[in-house]
Simulated assay, not measured.
Amino acid sequence: MAFIRFVMFGGGVGVLAGFAVTLLAVAMPWAVANAVVTVASTLLCTELHARFTFRKGRGAGWREHWQSAGSASAAYLVTSGAIGVLHLLRPSAGPAVEQMVYLGASGLAGAGRFLVLRLYVFATRSTRPLRRQGTSPVPVLLAA
Rank of each mutant, 00 (worst) to 15 (best):
A2C: 03
I4M: 13
I4T: 13
R5A: 06
R5E: 01
F6A: 07
M8E: 08
F9N: 02
F9C: 07
G11T: 07
G11H: 08
V13D: 05
V13F: 04
V13P: 02
V13K: 00
V13I: 15
G14C: 05
G18A: 14
G18I: 15
A20S: 14
V21C: 07
T22Q: 09
L23C: 01
L23R: 06
L24T: 03
L24W: 05
A25N: 13
A27E: 04
A27H: 13
M28Q: 01
P29N: 09
A31Y: 13
V32M: 11
V32F: 11
A33I: 05
N34M: 14
N34Q: 13
N34R: 15
N34Y: 09
A35E: 08
V36D: 13
V36T: 13
V37A: 12
V37K: 08
V37Q: 06
T38F: 10
T38Q: 12
T38S: 10
V39R: 06
A40C: 09
T42S: 09
T42F: 09
L43F: 09
L44F: 12
L48D: 10
L48A: 04
H49E: 14
H49K: 09
R51H: 13
F52R: 14
F52V: 14
T53Q: 05
F54E: 15
R55F: 09
K56E: 15
G57V: 12
R58Y: 01
R58N: 02
G59L: 08
A60Y: 04
E64L: 11
E64Y: 08
H65R: 11
W66M: 15
Q67T: 06
A69E: 11
G70W: 10
S71H: 05
S73T: 03
A74I: 14
A74M: 11
A74S: 09
L77C: 14
V78H: 03
T79C: 08
S80D: 12
G81P: 02
G81R: 04
A82Y: 04
G84Y: 02
G84S: 11
G84P: 05
V85N: 10
L86K: 08
H87V: 12
H87G: 03
L88R: 15
L88D: 03
L89K: 02
L89R: 07
L89A: 13
R90D: 14
R90V: 14
P91K: 06
S92P: 02
S92I: 03
S92F: 07
A93S: 15
A96C: 03
Q99L: 15
Q99W: 12
Y102L: 15
L103E: 03
L103P: 01
L103R: 06
G104D: 07
A105N: 00
A105G: 03
S106Q: 06
S106A: 14
S106W: 05
G107Y: 02
L108M: 12
L108D: 04
A109V: 06
G112Q: 05
G112D: 01
L115G: 02
L117I: 00
L119D: 08
Y120R: 03
V121Y: 02
F122A: 06
T124Y: 01
S126N: 13
S126Y: 03
T127W: 08
T127G: 04
R128G: 00
P129A: 04
R131G: 01
R132V: 03
R132H: 06
R132W: 08
Q133N: 12
G134A: 11
T135H: 07
T135C: 05
T135Q: 02
P137M: 09
V140L: 15
A143N: 01
